[in-house]
Write a protein that binds this DNA or RNA. Structure first.
Lengths: 228, 228
DNA sequence: ACTGCATTTATGTATAGACATAATAACGCC
DNA sequence: GGCGTTATTATGTCTATACATAAATGCAGT
């Protein structure tokens, strides 16, 4: 009955009820531990959790205070396209439209942090849900990171899925935006030119080298949702 | 030198190096604790952290295994528009275009979980960065949750900021999409009709009642970024 | 074989005590 | 008063131990 989640619930209640006002310092861990009749470590676990959620701000010596402007942190699950399609109950397939070594455009070279004029593997893929275009993907891939040296067969497994399973786990960053579809993009997705598309751009690194830059387009109707 | 973060680093290295293959069960906490010369609680902290990141899957009794398809979890910081504008070094201002009690459209009533035909407070706001339109906001607000009963002055503080600071902390969900701007939306944002707009829709609840439904539009050039 | 119960086991969590660390606050010096 | 040094203090983390809990496994009885 007195686990760290109970402590978190009670602290959350006090924040919501404004018993502890935004910006105010709340009692120390020691004091709360005594009050709730638990160990300090238990209070610590609860407060740390709330701090990670952005509701509390903690600093050594300064104590813990209720966040004035709680930065809401939403968590997105970036799933593999096949999973996403299959979760909708549709059958997934994909077609590789282009696959060749190509000189990277300046814009991509800058984002990937490689020298301008460098040749990287360029892969263009159309993802289909139930036979209809679902997403259009353009990807630049650093062949240096591919294990075995050879270029895998992206016709069998999609590039993203292959990378996730075969290249070391990575760090990266993602950006979302809305753009008007270019002529080529519109054609691939069976849309009118200039139609609004949802753009996901993902840059991925290992500790040392850039792995891949992906630009993924979804047509109208696509929604990216946060988890609860 | 042997903190939980060191343990996490080493475990992460083994996953990346495929010393522990995806899907494979890794040694138990006890064994790792002995190997690393730390307490089991320290190993637990490290493994729990990696599990939260989606790289490990843990089940009681079954043990800990390396995730086969690691669902990448990206975290977004949903900041207040004023902060976002000021972070760009531009001056923020906003204009309330409409504010009145209005019968909710069916679509909004369904999402908010209120009865069709109910009257809610409707607020339409234009957010400006450096005097230029930055975002267009449409909001339905449940007046029942407003403390004091009166309707606040959204001309002075923006609705979002006021709510964050004055209403109890809440739960909600967010969805993003790309749409074509309607005639009215385009006019508000000084865009051509049909231009692609980045749409953020946010639904917020307290434990009991719906608080607000927001539809926020950003014009071309807007990018939503994840944190590292 | 099959079903249901008991056993075993790995993770989940709680605890008291200790030391580490960062940052404020207090002090003393010029 | 202003500035640098030291003391204080709240959080951060580690340890050892204990018990809780979920779930897979094995056993027994039908």
């Amino acid at each position: 009955m007195t686990g760290w989640e109970d402590v978190r619930t009670e602290v959350l209640r006090r924040i919501r009820a404004r018993e502890w006002a935004p910006g105010a310092v709340i009692p120390g861990e020691e004091a709360l531990a005594v009050e709730f009749g638990v160990a300090r470590a238990t209070v610590n676990r609860a407060l740390r959790d709330l701090a990670e959620a952005g509701l509390l701000e903690r600093r050594r010596k300064a104590g813990t205070r209720v966040a004035v402007l709680p930065v809401r942190k939403a968590t997105l699950e970036i799933s593999i396209i096949r999973q996403e399609v299959e979760a909708r109950g549709e059958s997934y397939s994909h077609r590789v439209l282009t696959q060749r070594m190509e000189v990277v455009p300046m814009a991509v070279a800058l984002r990937m942090g490689v020298a301008a004029g460098m040749r990287l593997l360029f892969v263009e893929t159309l993802h289909l849900a139930g036979g209809r275009p679902f997403a259009h993907e353009v990807r630049w891939l650093n062949p240096g990171v591919l294990p075995g040296g050879g270029i895998p067969d992206f016709g069998a497994v999609s590039a993203n899925e292959w990378l996730v399973q075969n290249v070391a786990y990575t760090i990266g960053d993602i950006a979302f935006s809305a753009e008007a579809a270019s002529r080529e993009e519109a054609a691939a997705l069976a849309l009118a030119e200039g139609a609004p598309v949802f753009v996901t751009e993902r840059m991925t690194w290992t500790a040392e080298a850039p792995i891949t830059f992906v630009r993924l387009l979804h047509g109208p109707g696509y929604r990216l949702r946060t988890m609860v």
